[in-house]
Design a protein around this nucleic acid. Structure first.
Lengths: 142, 142
DNA sequence: TAAGATTGACCGATCAATCTTA
DNA sequence: TAAGATTGATCGGTCAATCTTA
């Protein structure tokens, strides 16, 4: 009978906590035809169209990952892609009306379904420090 | 230029922090022919052979996930599977000598490569509370 | 019927290799 | 040459369906 959460290394605790928190509102997300990865993109697109590289940096994810996430978002109709006229290598990603609508609905859901004890200021502070510090090493950005 | 980590929901901070902390010592793990998921199993097998269902509960993962993780561990020679004589439905998983050796070497590595600010008692306490609470709902166990 | 395990299909993420355009 | 993006292979995870044994 395995026990022993208290002995787990902190990295494993982080990964498991993240996974279980996600489960808590996965159904709600799916009902809106969205996933976590897609939601991040819709958030980042709030200030206007962005290239896929910029989106990858904002999400702290590799460009290959972002490429596939956007492909699924486009398939679902939440986002559109157009080649940049000024630089034909670049794809500009834009949020559709449907994407904006879904984002609005989901924003409240996320807070409503947040399990007790997760949305704690001290916890957030520590996580923000960790993400900031490790992001610099990987993406050369704050 | 996307910014705005401070506005991220806590669930996204958790997932991103977990991912970045893992990156920090992924290379070290790979050099020992191990992955995170495999390491969890080797840890859990410290008290003797376990069924795959018990391993899944201990790792807080679905049995389908554990089935594939063990398949890879077996392929790498870190673990062996035998059908339980007392109950032919059950597979008993045992750590091999090679598995035990690798586990020893990696245990120190994990602490050495832990980024600053991650191994904090207050952070650990909060994560343990979150994992415990949400595990009950999903696996009917503490 | 139920329990233990496996397989198929999918999403998210990585690395490596490739293609197109600057 | 380098930058932006895509594709292939792989691992980790999920759900749904299936198979075998209790």
């Amino acid at each position: 009978m395995p026990e022993g959460i208290d002995d787990w290394p902190t990295g494993r605790l982080l990964a498991t906590a993240a996974r279980l928190v996600e489960h808590a509102w996965l159904d709600a997300l799916a009902r809106e035809d969205l996933t976590h990865a897609g939601l991040v993109v819709l958030h980042l697109l709030g200030d206007g169209p962005l290239s896929q590289t910029a989106l990858a940096e904002g999400a702290r994810v590799e460009v290959q990952t972002m490429s596939r996430t956007i492909e699924r978002l486009e398939r679902a109709g939440h986002v559109e892609r157009q080649r940049d006229a000024a630089d034909a290598r670049r794809m500009l990603v834009t949020r559709t009306e449907a994407g904006a609508t879904v984002l609005d609905r989901v924003g409240e859901l996320e807070r409503e379904t947040m399990p007790d004890g997760v949305d704690d200021p001290a916890l957030r502070d520590q996580l923000i420090r960790i993400v900031s510090s490790l992001s610099e090493q990987r993406w050369d950005r704050g």
